[in-house]
Amino acid sequence: MADNSKPPPPTLLTPHVSEASSSPLKAPCNPHRWGLKPPIQKHSVAQKIQRLRNQEDLGSLAEAAAAEHNNVTHGDDMSGANAASKMYQVCMVCGAMGGEIDHVNRNAAGLVAEIVEVKGGKCNVNKVQLLRQKEMADALGAKVRVKLQGVGAQRASEVIANAPELKDVLVTIL
């Protein structure tokens, strides 16, 4: 017997409710106006770094090291180990989710200066994700920095360097 208690998954034709808004969405807007959605759970930077280290996977360890390296000072400026403690990129118009943001660096005025994407281990680079982050960074007057740590760091840096659309993305190998 089929389980009819679950609603059907949203499609392009059926409106759905976004995490960023309580109103039903219609079609996604074009172009998106990306912004930052802070974490739901409030933790200090030290708590988030410790929880990332407790995950013991290379990506989480690299995120903890990068946040320390950049001296992130506020817990809302970085993602944590679970979904409720992550910071997300969200369209401020339609509520579409663009993906997780690992952390941001702020300037002396408190504005976002860099959006930081951290890759550890094999350092698989997602060009679509980086292009979304670059679009948001451009709108904020910021830069995108990719921090790489692991066996795939050199290859990933070459992928970014050889993609003309990512020419402004800064790369740091830890």
Rank of each mutant, 00 (worst) to 15 (best):
N54K: 13
M92G: 04
N82C: 09
A62K: 05
V125Y: 11
N124C: 05
E68A: 00
A109H: 13
V125H: 07
K86Y: 05
R51M: 12
N105F: 03
A108C: 05
A84G: 08
M97A: 12
C94W: 07
Y88D: 08
D102Y: 01
G59F: 11
D102E: 09
K48M: 07
N126E: 11
V118P: 04
N71V: 09
L61I: 15
K122V: 15
A65Q: 02
I101Y: 01
T73L: 13
I49T: 09
A81G: 07
E114L: 04
E117L: 01
A108W: 03
V104M: 06
I49C: 05
V125M: 07
A67S: 08
A64R: 03
K119H: 00
G99H: 06
L61H: 03
V72K: 06
A108M: 02
N70F: 15
V72Y: 10
H103M: 02
R53C: 14
N70Y: 15
A66G: 12
S60M: 04
A108I: 08
Q89K: 04
K119W: 01
A67M: 06
M92N: 10
G75P: 11
K86A: 11
M78G: 12
V116Y: 00
H103N: 08
A108F: 00
V90N: 10
L58E: 15
V125K: 00
N107D: 15
V72T: 10
E114P: 11
I101H: 01
G80T: 10
A62D: 03
G80P: 14
G80V: 12
G99N: 09
Y88G: 04
K122C: 11
R53I: 11
A66V: 05
V112A: 03
N107Q: 12
R53L: 14
T73P: 00
D77Q: 02
E117Q: 04
A84L: 13
A64E: 03
V116M: 00
A66H: 06
N71M: 09
D102M: 03
E63P: 02
L52H: 02
C91D: 00
N71R: 13
I101T: 10
G80E: 09
I115T: 03
D57A: 04
Y88I: 01
S79F: 07
A84D: 14
E100K: 08
G98K: 01
C91F: 01
H74F: 08
A64P: 05
G98Q: 05
N82Y: 14
Q89R: 07
D76H: 05
E117D: 14
K48P: 02
L111G: 08
T73I: 08
A81M: 09
E68T: 04
A64V: 02
L58M: 13
G59V: 09
A84E: 14
K119M: 06
T73S: 15
D76A: 11
G99V: 12
A83L: 12
Q50F: 08
H69G: 09
K86N: 10
N126T: 02
I49G: 03
C123R: 02
C91G: 01
M97I: 10
Q55P: 03
K122M: 07
N107M: 07
V93T: 11
G98R: 00
S79M: 09
